[in-house]
């Protein structure tokens, strides 16, 4: 199988370039893109740099652009791809080296939405209870692994990474807005009412298209807009 991989080492390269590798994926028992990348790294070129950890779609480390679409290398089947398989780092984020990107802006936006439960009521003796229906509201929200596939596929984030929270951050914002145990719903909504944080979303749904966990940030974003409207009128 032919792979064309984005290479860039800022210490030695003037600019990025694409490097081709021909790998016998069957002989190396590669099923997923990550298997192939590790086989290339281990047998052909140990300078190839990438992030990976759990190799089963849970940690979200190996988000990258595979044949033009963001996804996790560990959950993307080689058999589903056309050759040559073109691998690039996640778009819109600064490249540190090869397929490793600087996620600082992504995490800063995540931090902005205060991704933790806030509750001003007295702490109960045991725990804050939730009905099964209240808990069900968090399904489709809490599963996010912060791989940044969605946010780095979003043009609104490319143009305003310092101001637009991005789909991953907004999905998490709604995860806490929708949580019955959180008492800061109004504050959370107010923090997103400016023209950039939430409303830069133009609903093109790239995020939904690429999410490796099958989540729907656009739906969460629209729920936030509706709640905000209810709060305002």
């Amino acid at each position: 199988m032919r792979f064309s991989i984005y290479r860039y080492n800022p210490e030695t390269d003037k600019k990025p370039y694409m490097q081709d590798y021909d790998l016998d994926s069957e002989a190396n028992s590669c099923y997923m893109v990550l298997d192939a990348l590790l086989a290339i790294k281990n047998t052909m070129d140990d300078t190839l740099t990438l992030r990976r950890s759990c190799r089963e779609g849970v940690c979200g480390s190996d988000g990258m652009n595979i044949n033009g679409k963001n996804g996790l290398a560990c959950t993307t089947h080689l058999s589903s791809l056309k050759e040559p398989i073109i691998i690039r780092p996640l778009p819109g984020l600064p490249v540190i080296r090869d397929l490793v990107v600087d996620m600082t802006q992504f995490y800063q936006q995540y931090e902005k939405i205060k991704p933790y439960l806030q509750n001003s009521e007295p702490v109960p003796a045991k725990e804050r209870l939730q009905s099964p229906a209240e808990r069900a509201k968090l399904d489709g929200l809490y599963e996010c692994i912060l791989c940044a596939c969605c946010t780095s596929s979003c043009p609104s984030f490319w143009w305003n990474p310092d101001k637009f929270v991005g789909p991953a951050g907004l999905l998490q914002a709604y995860r806490f807005i929708a949580d019955s145990r959180d008492t800061e719903k109004s504050e959370r909504l107010a923090d997103l009412a400016d023209p950039f944080s939430l409303f830069r979303c133009r609903g093109i749904m790239n995020c939904v298209d690429v999410c490796p966990k099958g989540l729907n940030p656009t739906k969460a974003i629209n729920e936030i807009k509706e709640l905000m409207l209810e709060e305002a009128v």
């Binding site: 107010a190 009412a193 400016d194 023209p195 409303f199 305002a232």
Partner: peptide, 18 residues
């Protein structure tokens, strides 16, 4: 202090509605 959607910079919401 309780922040209201209309109490702070809510230009985004207004623009979106308009």
């Amino acid at each position: 202090m309780v922040k209201s959607v209309l109490g702070v910079n809510h230009q985004g919401l207004t623009d979106w509605l308009i």
